[in-house]
Design a protein around this nucleic acid. Structure first.
Length: 763
RNA sequence: GGGCAAGUAGCCGAACUGGUAUAGGCGCUGGUCUUAGGAACCAGUGGAGAAAUCCGUGGGGGUUCGAGUCCCCCCUUGCCCACCA
């Protein structure tokens, strides 16, 4: 055996052996139970991987490896979410074809990820920019269109004048473009929309059926924003016209002294533009309003009350009109005081539905699905002068993204595709008349809304995935199935996660997927920040490249460090100094093996899962198996490593049988070194195909227990007694314990005994 | 303004349903091996004090035999949302 642990000699070697033997490839049918674990597939940026990327991959790798050892047929796939702005902006700057740039970037990412020994099934690698893939993204869009859930709408969109692109509400942060920080403008434009609001109720309700971390469920619920309220009609000027207001407090109607309309609604009703805009500025909260001159009749008391157009009511929530109840609403009070409107302090409360109609409303808006950009899936639609909107026939899919010379969006805000007349001008598929292609592309959320389905059957040319394979990997119980465990970033909780649940439910309604939810379980990880706690980014110049760490310390050290550095779900700063700890730990693991080989070489057979070892470390070993097994399930990876370190510190030498179990516990975290040592100890098969160690509760029990003795809540001593000693005996022993008795001057008032832990004597 | 997290040694962090606070790691100090150095090994490491002992989990109250953990008020930080009726 080699004297020293040299990661450079073993990591590449095992990676290529594993690949050759295909030990991480998932089987599409198996006697084993299936397990589908998933990470969010990366966007292959030109900067390559930084050390923050692998944290979730390693976490789910540990889970996946443990599941394999527990006898599951595990699917742990990887791919590329490769459409998107950074690549396109790079293409604009350099004139390089985004296809070439993407190929280069995915090459870098692939090489870097492979160097970490993650047990991905690379045979299922997918890429959203591959026409064989986006053919099905377009196909799903056509199904939305067919069902009337994709529709065109003229609307004011958020427009980034720098990126020259329409932005979804979600991409606008503090009135600025999320990407470049330029203040957004409003522009009127025809946009494709997806009617996610039709699914709002189910997206909300079905959260009760899935195992998502509580904060994830809550964030989704808040985003969907379901609220119960009522709409109430206010008749205008004794005419037939009426204004419908939405309120969650219809009982306060006797206190209503004015109506407040969103500017857009006021324009629609009166035909006049009052020059008021809803302020999105977070600082400026001044209430502004103009009396429209209209009077509305309060149905509760028949009072005629004024109708104002105001800057604090949004048109796209509720009905765009509210009733002002100054006595009960802070904003209404502020407004009423400013404009000297009556405030009725004490009024009669009405019944909930006495004057209105009970309704449910949601904050969730329909999804703006058009982008005026090049590097995205072309929306497969043709506009015919006679037939109108015509879907591209399914046999003509995919609508290939054509090559262009200039990737710049046009000044008019149209996609660069609009400049390619050869591509744009086509015959109508229906009437063969003159027609034009849609030049908008899809947002980069499209391809990621269904990718987990494609992994089950990535090469299928007939369907997005065969039903048989979907049934196998997702399960056939509509209420129970889905990807078994999906871990991802918190930043995707409200967008990607919600969008993909929506697509999945739609496909479920079409009978194309077997389950009503895509993911059974969802957890999240914390970001790795740069030293000093700042976000890691190229522009800040604080990016750590994993290649350097792998070269210096090895992939196993990097993996153990990333799992050990802190709680998996919390953000944590990179600390280059601390990496040496995990490296030293692995060195010690190696050293134990060399001693075992020296002492037992050739004498012992590989263990068969039991270990007839008679010494005090057996209890500690079983405790460690239990802790490691349970903590991995709870993603408490940091305490797993800590437990393994403690076990090694307390057992600097150990019998071969014990050591082999220790190696198996460590294997999901440090796959290379454990494989090397496993084989050096005489095994022919991979450690990663070994059964996961089992613990025996009866072996964990201690024969003697330590009882802490407190006097008035302060620790004054301890006694050691046989585990089965009764309470009375322990009490009397504690009272006479030498180090304790001097604190007891009088008869104890009370003696409290906590079984097996401590005794507190109150005097 | 609302929601969600969180605040423990010099630093990252442990502590199960209230029960020995600071496990594990980094760093630091001393030592060993070494020509030397180290990413090696061993020992020590919350504060005050000569000691007994006392004080210590953001601050202040409270409940309890006992509080990092539960309750109330406040402060700070991070994330998400925001005039949502």
């Amino acid at each position: 055996m080699a004297k020293n642990y040299d990661h450079t000699k073993i990591e590449k070697k095992w990676q290529s052996i594993w690949e050759k033997k295909k030990i991480y490839q998932a089987q599409n049918s198996s006697k084993k139970s299936k397990y589908y674990s998933l990470i969010e597939f990366p966007y292959p940026s030109g900067d390559g991987l930084h050390v923050g990327h692998p944290r979730p991959y390693i976490g789910m790798d540990v889970i996946s490896r443990k599941k394999r050892m527990e006898g599951y047929n595990v699917l742990y796939p990887i791919g590329w979410d490769a459409f998107g702005l950074p690549t396109e902006n790079y293409a604009i700057k350099t004139g390089k074809d985004p296809r070439i740039v993407t190929k280069k970037n995915t090459g870098t990412f692939r090489r870097q990820i492979k160097s970490l020994g993650i047990s991905f099934d690379w045979s299922r690698e997918i890429n959203t920019t591959d026409p064989k893939y986006y053919k099905w993204t377009q196909w799903i869009f056509l199904q939305f269109l067919k069902k009337g859930l994709a529709y065109k709408k003229k609307m004011l969109i958020n427009w980034c004048p720098k990126d020259k692109i329409g932005l979804a509400n979600e991409e606008v942060v503090n009135s600025c473009c999320e990407r470049c920080g330029t203040p957004v403008e409003k522009r009127e434009k025809e946009q494709w929309m997806l009617a996610i609001t039709k699914y709002a109720e189910r997206l909300d309700r079905d959260l009760d059926t899935v195992d998502f971390l509580p904060h994830i469920k809550l964030a989704q619920k808040n985003w969907i924003g379901k609220s119960e309220g009522a709409t109430i009609q206010f008749v205008i000027n004794n005419s037939k016209l009426s204004i419908e207001v939405f309120t969650t407090r219809p009982d306060t109607i006797f206190g209503a002294t004015f109506l407040a309309l969103a500017p857009e609604l006021a324009k629609k009703i009166t035909g006049k533009d009052f020059g008021i805009k809803v302020d999105t500025d977070r600082e400026n909260r001044d209430k502004i309003g103009i009396d429209t001159g209209l009077k509305a009749k309060n149905p509760a008391n028949s009072e005629m009350i004024p109708v104002y157009v105001v800057n604090y009511v949004s048109v796209d929530y509720g009905t765009g009109a509210i009733m002002g109840v100054p006595a009960d609403d802070e904003r209404d009070r502020e407004f009423a005081e400013k404009y000297k409107l009556p405030i009725i302090e004490n009024y009669k409360k009405a019944g909930f539905e006495e004057f209105g109609k009970k309704v449910t409303t949601f904050k969730l808006r329909d999804w703006i699905f058009s982008r005026q950009r090049y590097w995205g899936e072309p929306i497969p639609v043709i506009f015919c002068e006679d037939c109108g909107v015509v879907p591209v026939p399914e046999k003509d899919l995919p609508v290939l993204l054509p090559k262009v010379k200039n990737y710049q969006p046009t000044e008019s805000g149209e996609s660069p595709l609009a400049n390619i007349s050869k591509w744009v001008n086509v015959k109508c598929p229906k009437c063969k008349g003159k027609a034009k292609r849609e030049t908008d592309t899809m947002p980069n959320w499209a391809g990621s809304s269904w990718y987990y389905l494609r992994y089950t059957d990535p090469k299928n040319t007939k369907e997005f995935a065969s039903r048989k394979k979907l049934n196998y990997w997702l399960g056939t119980d509509p209420a129970e199935g889905g990807v078994d465990w999906y871990n991802g970033g918190n930043e995707h909780t409200t967008l990607h996660l919600l969008y993909s649940r929506f697509w999945h439910k739609f496909l479920f309604d079409l009978g194309l997927v077997p389950t009503s939810e895509p993911y059974k379980k969802r957890t999240s990880h914390g970001l790795i920040l740069a030293e000093g706690g700042e976000k890691m980014s190229k522009s800040r110049g604080n990016v750590i490249n994993p290649d350097d760490i792998v070269a210096r310390f090895g992939a196993d050290t990097l993996r153990v460090y990333e799992m050990f550095m802190g709680p998996f779900d919390q953000a944590i700063a990179w600390n280059e100094e601390a990496i040496i700890g995990p490296r030293r730990f692995l060195e010690r693991v190696w050293k134990v093996a060399t001693q075992i080989q020296k002492n037992f070489s050739g004498l012992l057979q590989p263990s068969a899962g039991t270990f007839p070892v008679q010494n005090s470390s057996v209890s500690a070993l079983h405790k460690t198996i239990k802790k490691v097994s349970e903590d991995i399930e709870g993603m408490r990876f940091n305490t797993v490593i800590s437990a393994l370190m403690i076990f090694l510190n307390e057992n600097p030498t150990m019998p071969k049988e014990v050591y082999e179990i220790f190696l198996k516990l460590l294997a999901p975290f440090a796959p290379h070194i454990t494989e090397e040592l496993w084989q050096l100890l005489g095994h022919k098969q991979s450690i990663h195909l070994e059964p996961w160690p089992k613990y025996d509760l009866s072996r964990i029990k201690d024969t003697e227990i330590k009882i802490v003795v407190q006097v008035n809540g302060k620790v004054r001593g301890e006694i050691i007694v046989p585990a089965e000693t009764g309470e009375d005996e322990i009490k009397s022993k504690a009272l006479t314990e030498g180090s304790v008795s001097k604190y007891i001057s009088s008869t104890p008032k009370k003696v409290i005994y906590v079984k097996g832990r401590l005794i507190n004597i109150v005097v």
